[in-house]
Structure formats: structure tokens, C-alpha cells
């Protein structure tokens, strides 16, 4: 067990280092903005107060390294700074500063929750569905079912998310009004209502993710079924079901975990476009909106959250597949 603990500690350390470098990149990228970007961002019409507020907020008078660690320190305490849009708005209306409404964290938190809900619903549908289909395609490879599945998944992977989204809207919202095409969600909605409004974006994401996951599962299982120990199990006269459950599955764990984690990580990217199509109030939409109005602190925060989730998922997959490897669990 000693060596497994050490390997996991190594991976965790590596993940942290990666995260650190990613934060450096995100911070440095923003600092590549030309000139006095407080002015550039707010445009010519901004009041001097707003410009001053942003300058102060960013601490533009300090050297970049100090600014970076100030920013990182804030992030670690859950403080992502103040949203430009909010600051601008305040400077025009003259509202009190420091009310908390303008802070990035307050803006991001509820939307992050919504996004997690969407991802959760998607995963709940996509994971079991694609695993079953993938295993079936592997078991009956080269059959008509397998070929049809191959063409279907390739088509689904190749289509942009918005194409799938509009087709679903066309059939399930416009032609047969079964589900709402706009996913406006409020904090005080009941779970059922919330689920209903999330279903269409979740189905769109499911289509994309299922295709990926199914293909990867199929490949992993085919690889596994070709191994001599599966042939050995068959030659021992074991029933087909037992061959799968007892001999294939324990060894399929690592690749399957990898497939799931990779695709959940993939969801992170897919969520952006889908949220925009359905006007789903998640972090993806906030991100795109902030990109358009160049609300730098929000963009930074969203980017960091996406990257952190991505790294975390990959790390989790890594660690779980190490744990499921008998060679590492039972060293010589």
C-alpha cells in the first residue's frame, strides 16, 4: 500500500502545481491587455469615479507579481474581486459600494449551482445509457447494431451542439410542445419544475456526451475482450454473463472510470454553448456574457473555476484508476 499512497500523493502534488501554473496563465493573459485597460474597458463614456474604482480594485499601481499574489490570496478565500459591470452600474446610479451585490463571488455562486445541476442531470442520463450501449456494441461488434451505432455516434459527435439543440427544440418544444425551449430557472422553484426546464439542455448534452462515452467504452471493452484471460475464462466453460461480470468488469473499471471522467470534463466545454442556446442561467452563460462586455474579473473567475473542475476530474480519474489496478494494489 506504501507505493500506492506515494503515487497518489505525487499525482495530487502534480495537480496542485498544474493548477498553480494555470492561475498564473489566466492572470498573465489578462495583464496583456493594452494600455490603461480600466479606461479601455469602460469606454469613453465612463465616469472618472468608475475608472478610479476599477484602478483601485485592480491595484494597477502595484507591480504585477504583488497583484498576482493579492488576487490568488483573495481567490483562496473565495473573494474573486468586483465585477466591472456592477462597478460601472454603481458609478452611474451612485449606489453604496461594498454592498456585496457587485462581488464576483456573489454573482457566480448561484449560477455555478445551476450548472452543477445541469451537469448532474446530464450525467445521470448519459452515464448508464452510454455504458450499456457501449458494452452491447462491443459484445456484438461488426453486427448491424454496431455499425448503426457507429454511424449514429459519429454523426452526433460531428454535429455542433447548437445544431442538436435546435433540432431537439424543433421536435420537442415547437412541433410537440412537451418541454419549454427556454430554461429560465429561479431559486425558489420546485425540484420537479426545475427538472422539467433543465431537461432539454440536458438531453442535448446527453446526445453529445453519450456518443463520445459510448465509443470509448466500446473500444475499451473490445480491447479487454481480446485479452487471453477472457479466452481462458470461456475455455473454462464459464457462462457468458459470468465472464463479463467476474472477468471483464474488474479489469474494465480503470478504462471506464477514465471514460466517465474524461466526458464529464468534456461536459464543461459543452455546457457553455448549450446554456447560451437555452438561456440557462448557468456559469457558462455568465462567462460568455462577461466575455462580450469584457468584465475581466468575472471572466477570470469563471475561467479558473472551469479549469479547476477540469483538472480535478482528470485527477480523480487518474487516482481511481490507480486504485483499481491490482498490480499496484498488491505489490510484489
Amino acid at each position: 500500500m506504501q507505493s500506492v499512497a506515494r503515487i497518489i500523493a505525487q499525482r495530487l502534488g502534480l495537480g496542485l502545481v498544474t493548477l498553480f501554473f494555470v492561475s498564473v496563465i489566466i492572470f498573465a493573459a489578462v495583464n496583456m491587455l493594452p494600455g490603461d485597460f480600466a479606461q479601455a474597458i469602460l469606454g469613453q463614456g465612463a465616469t472618472p469615479e468608475a475608472v478610479e474604482a476599477i484602478r483601485r480594485d485592480l491595484g494597477l499601481d502595484k507591480p504585477p507579481i504583488t497583484r498576482y499574489f493579492d488576487w490568488l490570496g483573495g481567490v483562496l478565500q473565495g473573494d474573486f474581486g468586483t465585477s466591472f459591470a456592477a462597478a460601472n452600474f454603481r458609478s452611474f446610479t451612485g449606489a453604496e459600494t461594498g454592498s456585496g451585490l457587485g462581488s464576483v463571488a456573489a454573482q457566480v455562486a448561484p449560477r455555478f449551482e445551476n450548472t452543477l445541476f445541469l451537469a448532474g442531470v446530464t450525467a445521470a442520463i448519459a452515464v448508464p445509457f452510454s455504458l450499456i450501449l457501449g458494452v452491447l456494441a462491443a459484445l456484438f461488434r461488426n453486427s448491424i447494431f454496431d455499425r448503426a451505432a457507429n454511424i449514429g455516434t459519429l454523426t452526433s459527435i460531428s454535429s455542433p451542439e447548437f445544431f442538436l439543440a435546435y433540432i431537439l427544440i424543433l421536435f420537442l418544444a415547437v412541433l410537440n410542445p412537451m418541454l419549454p425551449s427556454l430554461s429560465n430557472i429561479y431559486a425558489d422553484m420546485s425540484f420537479g419544475e426545475r427538472l422539467e426546464r433543465t431537461l432539454l439542455p440536458a438531453l442535448t448534452l446527453t446526445l453529445v456526451v453519450t456518443a463520445h462515452m459510448m465509443r470509448m467504452t466500446r473500444a475499451a471493452i473490445i480491447n479487454l475482450l481480446a485479452s487471453p484471460y477472457i479466452e481462458m475464462a470461456r475455455l473454462k466453460g464459464i457462462s457468458p454473463l459470468r465472464v463479463i461480470v467476474k472477468h471483464a468488469l474488474p479489469n474494465a473499471l480503470a478504462p471506464i472510470i477514465n471514460v466517465i471522467a474524461l466526458n464529464l470534463a468534456y461536459l464543461i466545454t459543452g455546457v457553455v454553448v448549450v446554456e447560451v442556446v437555452f438561456v440557462y442561467p448557468g456559469i457558462g452563460q455568465l462567462f460568455v456574457d462577461s466575455v462580450k462586455i469584457r468584465d475581466i474579473p468575472v471572466v477570470q473567475a469563471c475561467c479558473l473555476i472551469f479549469a479547476a473542475a477540469y483538472i480535478l476530474l482528470n485527477l480523480l480519474a487518474d487516482i481511481l484508476s490507480i486504485l483499481s489496478n491490482p498490480r499496484l494494489r498488491h505489490p510484489k
Partner: peptide, 12 residues
């Protein structure tokens, strides 16, 4: 380690 669409949006 940064999802490419996200990174692209940031850089854009």
C-alpha cells in the same frame, strides 16, 4: 489543463 473553448474565450 484549461478546456480549450474556455481558454479560447478568455484569450478572445
Amino acid at each position: 489543463a484549461i478546456p480549450s473553448l474556455i481558454f479560447a474565450l478568455l484569450l478572445m
